[in-house]
């Protein structure tokens, strides 16, 4: 029972992270109909950006350990701003020139952008203020990130809020899990409100429905697309930040961690019906449940280490039953 609850907690936590990332995939797909493979690299940037803020910038500004209580929120905002800007730049300089080009080209461009971010992130320059002979030397400020994994500073203590069971078999709900789930849900609700209740959201939906008619109706298509990228990147930044709060090893930019997270989130978006925001959230949780419960309860029969297989099997099964995902609208074929 306790094990079940523990797995459930983890599934919900990880699921909300997947959902946040999946939203970015699904928004871009909904509008531009292409898979933004560079999205997972924006997540990485969010993670490293918040790390950079908390571990390098704050100490240089004189806020040492323990970090002040507002550090977490500021790190999140910093990461969001950084990623939002990056998302904007990527769209402006890599994707916009390709508007109207075959989708496969945009896809290759996305892979190119992804390769660029991954490899640029591995380079390392060290900035030292003043002369390096000063004793003690000023803490080095590293740009960008290098190939070594780093430890995310503790921004929030992970205290047990709820403990069920005794001894070796307990289920714990930590404060970190609650913060992650709450932040993710809040962002999702905000996004939903934005898309459904505001004028900008209406414009987004219009562009997603039909770009040409939206343009004819006076919707500034390019601005809407830019904003969509920024929104997706901001959510990705939040996901990256929450991810390294939960799993505090900040892996280097080309580490399989990020590819895998991005891939699973993307699968989540497809399972939920790509282009559908609520579908992405649903898909995120579904994928997390499939991998967590598959790994826990099927390992007796199949052995462990098969998370990916469960994820992709879930994907194939869902697609065979519903070819456009759970909440996806059926494909309209125009002749």
């Amino acid at each position: 029972m306790a094990d079940l609850l523990q797995i459930l907690t983890m599934a919900v936590t990880v699921g909300s992270l997947y959902a946040l990332i999946a939203l970015g995939y699904t928004m871009v797909y909904g509008i531009l109909k292409f898979i933004n493979f560079a999205h997972s690299d924006v997540v990485v940037l969010g993670a490293w950006g918040s790390f950079f803020f908390a571990a390098a910038l704050l100490p240089r500004m004189g806020f040492g350990t323990p970090l002040p209580w507002w550090a977490g929120g500021m790190a999140l905002l910093f990461a969001m701003a950084l990623c939002g800007l990056t998302g904007f730049l990527i769209e402006r300089f890599a994707y916009r020139p390709l508007r109207g080009a075959p989708r496969l080209n945009v896809l290759i461009t996305a892979i190119g952008v992804s390769l660029f971010l991954q490899n640029a992130g591995q380079l390392q320059f060290t900035l030292v203020r003043g002369d390096d002979t000063a004793q003690p030397p000023a803490p080095a400020l590293r740009l960008p990130f290098g190939t070594q994994p780093q430890r995310m500073p503790t921004l929030l203590p992970d205290q047990d809020l709820l403990v069920i069971g005794e001894g070796q078999s307990t289920a714990r709900l930590g404060s970190l899990d609650v913060v992650i789930i709450a932040t993710a849900l809040a962002l999702m609700v905000l996004l939903d409100l934005l898309v459904r209740r505001t004028k900008f959201g209406m414009a987004m939906r219009a562009v997603s429905f039909n770009t040409d008619s939206a343009a004819l109706m006076g919707v500034p298509v390019n601005r809407v697309i830019s904003m969509t990228f920024v929104l997706g990147a901001v959510l990705a930044a939040a996901a990256g930040f929450l991810y390294v709060l939960k799993f505090p090893t900040v892996q280097q930019t080309a580490h399989p961690t990020w590819v895998l997270v991005g891939l699973k989130a993307f699968v989540a978006a497809v399972v939920g019906g790509i282009g559908n925001l609520r579908g992405a959230v649903l898909g995120g949780f579904l994928i997390a449940f499939a991998e967590q419960f598959g790994e826990s309860y099927l390992q007796k029969y199949l052995g462990s280490g098969l998370k990916d297989v469960y994820v992709f099997s879930a994907l194939i099964l869902v697609l065979l039953v519903r070819p456009t995902g759970i909440l996806g609208s059926p494909l309209r074929e125009k002749v």
Partner: peptide, 14 residues
Amino acid sequence: RMVIYALLLVSVMI
């Protein structure tokens, strides 16, 4: 190398 490669890829596509 890989950074240049990525940039070339993107520019060819554009």
